[in-house]
Amino acid sequence: MEFLSAIIAGISLGSIYALIALGYTMVYGIAKMLNFAHGDVIMVGAFMMFIALTKMGLHPILCIIFGTVICTILGVVIEKLAYKPLRKATSLAVLITAIGVSYFLQNSAQLIFGAGSKTFTSLFGSGNISLFDGQIIISHNTIVTICVSVIIMIGLTLFINKTKTGRAMLAVSEDKGAAQLMGINVNKTISITFAIGSALAAIAGALLCSSYPILSPTTGAMPGIKAFTAAVLGGIGSIPGAMIGGILLGVIENISKVYISTQLSDAIVFGILIIILLVKPTGILGKKMNEKV
């Protein structure tokens, strides 16, 4: 029963990683860049929801919508100001810029909200459900997290595969030039991708801070890096890969915490990143990179 609890908590944590990893992997697939500022968008989203809840006294649902809208705009603006001018630059320049944006967001948050951490109140209530005569206790947060993540993942999969915009995204991620020849506006498609990725990050922020209620300017950094690991584990650029990688990583992390050591769990997670990069850099579902001649 302890094992089952650990698995359920792991799936819940993993679905948050998966939501964040989706943003990483979609942006990578389309813009061929690692947006290391992605984790900090989570933090911005969580702060916005925190303010909406505590200062503006909005209904939790409205708080989530408020934070998500702000993050969506933020993602598009970051892309326009920081990454678009570098469309033809080397990938190293883009990577360094992304790290710069990450620091910019963290330090701006520190300036505005202070460096101290705040206690985030769960947006989904604090109740529990107990199963098997109290042998397994599942919090409302866990249930909401898993349900919301599953709905979003199904929705996103349908969006990518069934809508015109979704197929345009797949086309752009495979061949920008050929996509343009179809009449697809590549810049617009990249903006849409950043918008979706950032919206998912905001929702992930709401779920994350509801389960782990400490909010500070660096809140997004660690989950961001872990979600990146999840994206690499699943195969960077692959949408189902990010989902599988995220959930797998959450489960591994939680089981390590329960059965091995709390302190070592992060080391185990990042150890996985190193092993994957050494053994199978394309990840579980990653496609072989075809070098264009």
Binding site: R167, L170, E174, A178, Q180, L181, G183, I184, N185
Partner: peptide, 23 residues
């Protein structure tokens, strides 16, 4: 821009086909 030229009735079959191989 290229994506607007398409709407003017011009189509381009590129060298090496460049079909979307995953779709």
């Amino acid at each position: 821009p290229a994506h607007k030229i398409v709407t003017m009735g011009m189509a381009h079959v590129p060298e090496g086909r460049r079909i979307f191989s995953q779709l």
